[in-house]
């Protein structure tokens, strides 16, 4: 699975790593039990501070997407994240509201936004199957 990092982006690099891995899980490119490179190796590959990668991994672990085993390494563990769906829905309300507000302000048709979300779901679930 390929992870793309944009050094010129406004989004912090640790968030780009986090989002890339979540995207990989959603699209089925990363599955339960798949190993991830160590913090040291990924930091060296991207050319970023170890704290940046560590921050992304810690965040992913706290969200239940990965498991960090002290001696064995880091593994995908998306099962835990699936159990936290209710918590996710509670937390995603605010960013989703901001997005919808902006769409309304820009007079984006409700159906178009719905269609976009459906299309993304189809694309990710299609990849997974």
């Amino acid at each position: 699975m390929l992870l793309s990092i944009d050094f010129g982006s406004d989004q912090p690099i640790y968030m780009q790593i986090r989002n890339g891995i979540v995207n990989g899980i959603a699209s089925g490119n990363l599955n339960d039990g798949d190993p991830l490179p160590s913090v040291r190796t990924l930091g060296a590959e991207i050319g970023v501070n170890l704290h940046t990668v560590n921050k992304a991994y810690q965040l992913l672990q706290s969200e239940g997407f990965i498991e960090i085993q002290r001696r064995r390494g880091t593994f995908i563990k998306a099962g835990d994240a699936a159990q936290n769906a209710a918590e996710f829905l509670e937390n995603c309300g605010d960013p989703l509201k901001t997005l919808v507000s902006e769409a309304v302000t820009r007079r984006v048709d409700r159906a178009v936004l719905h269609q976009m979300i459906d299309h993304m779901y189809d694309e990710l679930e299609g990849n997974e199957s």
Binding site: L2, L3, S4, F7, D34, P35, I46, G73
Partner: peptide
């Protein structure tokens, strides 16, 4: 500005 890395390979492989 951009770099793409392969996440599919663990340290054991590399």
């Amino acid at each position: 500005k951009k770099i793409v890395v392969d996440l599919g390979k663990s340290d054991r492989e590399t």
